[in-house]
């Protein structure tokens, strides 16, 4: 049983590390601010929560697991909020998407 939990935890950690790397690579390589936010959101929700899930599986049913869940909840609510505020501020500031046609909004507000 402990062996199975270790396997599941290792899989979660590896998947989380993979998604973190993909998100950071996208943050560096994407051509446009909005696509960069899209890539970074992968890191901040999926990658972070998968890594935390792997740590929860290792911690077992303890106070440490409760703290990890608190961190996961914080990331899960706070970082999409920050991304939304960032893109909204960029939109208000006039940063246009790369493929937007001139003179017409790329999306409805």
């Amino acid at each position: 049983m402990s062996f199975l939990i270790d396997i599941a935890s290792a899989l979660c950690l590896l998947a989380g590390a993979f998604f973190c790397l993909v998100g950071a690579w996208g943050l560096l390589r994407m051509p446009d601010f909005y696509t960069r936010v899209h890539a970074a959101s992968v890191l901040e929700t999926l990658g972070a929560d998968l890594i935390l899930l792997g740590l929860v599986l290792q911690a077992g049913f303890t106070l440490v697991a409760a703290k990890l869940l608190l961190i996961g909840l914080l990331i899960f609510f706070a970082s999409p909020t920050a991304s939304h505020a960032l893109t909204r501020a960029a939109m208000l500031r006039g940063v246009t998407p790369l493929l937007a046609k001139q003179g017409e909004p790329s999306s409805k507000p």
Binding site: R36, A59, A90
Partner: peptide, 26 residues
């Protein structure tokens, strides 16, 4: 190029630092 790119990078670094602290503790 824009300040929002830098802010998004700062946000990402902050999230990564949280993960790093948790992983380092374990």
């Amino acid at each position: 190029p824009t300040v929002f790119d830098r802010l998004q990078a700062a946000n990402t670094i902050g999230t990564s630092a949280m993960l790093l602290l948790a992983l380092f503790g374990f």
